[in-house]
Design a protein around this nucleic acid. Structure first.
Length: 641
RNA sequence: GCUGGCGUAGCUCAACGGCAGAGCAGCGGUUUUGUAAACCGCAGGUUGGAGGUUCGAUUCCUCUCGCCAGCUCCA
């Protein structure tokens, strides 16, 4: 046996993985719930057949979490079968932060059912039943599960190619499972069922709906509590809640689902984002353009949208003798802009950028606050270039994207290349060529990326960048898509050096994705406490009594004239209340103006969440604010007098 | 779109076949205040909408619209 510390020892054949791990110190390593044998996770009770490298698996390791949660799912399945014997087993995998198990049952599980199941789970854990692994021949297993009425298990085994399958038995629940598991049910210390919901068998909406129960488990109560606390934190940061509370956005039944009303405060933040965006695009060689919200349906026929994107489009409308279509994308307009002139190779690359508002019909069940809506503004751009310029252009876009995302405080990314979907225009060869160009650009940047098979848009492959927020959740925003098809469909050309017409390549890209989604993510990232450069109100001047109103107004005026967003709170309320409300409105700076300040020409500065920073001259505060806003600082430094 | 849950005042929530209520917010007054809630008063509702059952419906039933969770699909 070889061990991770580099030592090796001899052990007789048939020694279990657990016994092997105990060889060094005489007992099992702390927290070991399974073992990695030559990198493969196995039960501690698994006998070793040959020489191998053996390492312990603990909950702290990704493999350990999987084992732990998977075992938890089995225990839940046992509890469900005990209480609802007619429920049929399907699948019950570990997931990111817990596990679920899908059951075929005649009715959905109620919250009361979950309580009963949870109580039964506790009994099973207390009984500390061992998980026993057994192997069966394929046919034998099918017959076994058929007798038990587990049709779904039979269907699964029928899909397998292996001759033998493994099953696990704990306390009479015998479930088809690859394993491994914790040694016994008593190893699960803190477990909680979270929600019940419907889910289709094999994730296909044509299949019957199963009853899914989600849960999570941890080795200690404290870890579980910390996780539940995190869920509460996420709820508090919910952009739908904060968006309303902070008067950023509103949605209205009368307006319609998935359509956002940007209130003055939300609009102020948006304006800062857009100003930054425009400034940067000008500096990065883009031409800023505008296009209409509707166009003749024929345009969308040419682009292929009516054929490949129809289910996401609002119905066309008839105007005079022709049909018009509300735009689901901006690309055809930019294409027509390209076509407004005869283009030379000298013109390329041509970069058109637009904050273009598009409308897409989304199935009602998928709408979600600002993150999934029916009308949204893309920070869209289309680059027209020669084939040999693709890599360079994509590389520039990638650099630009990361610069923009970083400015808003997102530093963690996941990058994915999406390949040809089932419904697609263009030849396999064109797709392969475009995909290769994207991968080449990523490689030239030294960027790690994954592949999302079949996830491309209908007109071309894409690079998607998912950002990770402070809570570790990822969101899809940025996208770069190569398009060989639209230039073809629209017959785009440019005159080459050789005096012959050539076909340009098109690249679609969005950095933030959509302003709505990006704003929703920003709200959650900062829990509504925006960096000062973005904050709807950057400072509030708080007059202590009516006597100080003139002075407070004067201070507010000076700051406003210097270009800052400042309000004066002159109400005849106590200062405690004004502070409280300013803190709750998440205003970065509160400037208290009373007798002392009025006399000295100062303000007492209080920072959001940071308390009183003391008095300073208005000029000193202004300089501090200027520096912070111009530098687009993500956090506020304590100002110094 | 599918499955389930939920729609009561601007917000958060009570009442669950028998007179629709509270806190906060709002409005009016008093208070002139020093770093996260001063006090008093007033007003606020076709209980999402339509139909039905009932002597009587916020409550039970049907339909419909919307929201929430999950599934499926996406910026």
């Amino acid at each position: 046996m070889k061990f991770p510390d580099g030592t090796s020892r001899k052990a007789p054949k048939g020694t279990t993985a657990g016994e092997a791990l105990a060889l060094c110190t005489g007992k099992l390593p702390e927290g070991a719930i399974a073992a990695l044998v030559d990198g493969k996770p196995v039960d501690l009770s698994r006998p070793l057949e040959a020489d191998a490298e053996v390492r312990p698996v603990t909950f702290e390791m990704p493999e350990g979490k999987e084992v732990y949660r998977h075992s938890s799912a089995h225990i839940m399945a046992q509890a469900v079968k005990d209480l609802f014997p007619t429920a049929k087993l399907t699948i019950g995998p570990p997931i990111e932060e817990g596990f679920y198990y899908d059951f075929a049952y005649e009715r959905p599980f109620t919250p009361e059912d979950l309580e009963k199941i949870e109580a039964r789970i506790q009994e099973i854990i207390r009984a500390n039943q061992p998980f026993r692994r057994r192997e069966m021949k394929r046919a034998e297993a099918i017959e076994f599960f058929r007798q038990r009425g587990e049709d779904y298990k039979c269907e699964m085994i029928q899909g397998f190619t292996d001759e033998t399958v493994s099953v696990y038995d704990q306390g009479g629940l015998i479930d088809l499972c690859r394993g491994p598991h914790v040694p016994s049910t008593g190893h699960i210390h803190a477990i909680k069922l979270l929600t019940a919901a419907g889910a289709y068998w094999r994730g296909d909406e044509r299949n019957p709906m199963l009853q899914r129960i989600y849960g999570t488990s941890f080795p200690t109560r404290a870890l579980l509590d910390a996780y539940l606390h995190k869920l509460e934190e996420i709820k508090k940061r919910d952009h739908r809640k904060l968006g309303r509370e902070l008067d950023l956005i509103a949605v209205s039944d009368e307006v319609g689902p998935g359509l956002i009303l940007w209130l003055p405060k939300g609009s102020t933040v948006r304006l800062q984002i857009e100003n930054f965006w425009r400034e940067q695009h000008q500096q990065h060689g883009y031409a800023l353009v505008y296009s209409p919200h509707v166009a003749r349906l024929d345009l969308w026929k040419t682009s292929g949208h009516t054929e490949y994107y129809r289910e996401n489009m609002f119905a066309p409308m008839q105007v005079e003798a022709s049909d018009y279509q509300l735009k689901p994308m901006n690309c055809p307009f930019h294409i027509m802009m390209y076509k407004s002139h005869l283009r030379s190779y000298r013109d390329l690359p041509l970069r058109y950028a637009e904050l273009g508002t598009v409308y897409r019909y989304e199935r009602s069940g998928v709408l979600h606050g600002l993150l999934r809506v029916r009308g949204f503004t893309q920070d869209d751009a289309h680059l027209f270039c020669r084939a040999d310029q693709i890599e360079e252009e994509v590389s520039r876009v990638l650099d630009f994207t990361f610069f923009v995302l970083k400015t808003f405080g997102f530093a963690d990314y996941q990058v994915c290349v999406s390949t040809r979907p089932e419904k697609a225009v263009g030849s396999e060869a064109a797709w392969a060529q475009a995909t290769a160009a994207l991968e080449a650009a990523l490689k030239s940047r030294g960027m790690a990326y994954g592949i999302d098979p079949g996830q491309g848009v209908f007109y071309g492959p894409k690079i998607d960048i998912k950002i990770k927020d402070v809570l570790g959740r990822s969101w899809q925003c940025s996208t770069v898509q190569v398009d060989f098809n639209n230039p073809e469909r629209f017959g785009l050309e440019f005159m080459g050096e050789d005096g012959q017409p050539h076909r340009p390549i098109m690249i679609h890209r969005a950095l933030m994705g959509s302003i709505e989604r990006f704003f929703g993510i920003l709200i959650e990232q900062y829990a509504g406490a925006f960096p000062t450069w973005l904050a709807p109100v950057q400072a509030v001047v708080i007059a202590i009594t009516d006597k100080h109103a003139d002075y407070a107004q004067d201070v507010a005026r000076r700051l406003t004239e210097a270009g800052f967003r400042v309000e004066a709170d002159l109400r005849s309320e106590k200062i405690g209340l004004k502070i409280r409300e300013a803190e709750r409105a998440k205003i970065p700076y509160m400037l208290v103006a009373g007798d002392r300040e009025k006399q000295d020409g100062t303000v007492s500065v209080r920072t959001r969440g940071g308390g009183n920073a003391g008095a300073m001259t208005v000029a000193a505060f202004l300089a501090h604010l200027q520096e912070e806003v111009e530098g687009r600082a993500l956090t506020s430094a304590m100002p110094k007098a």
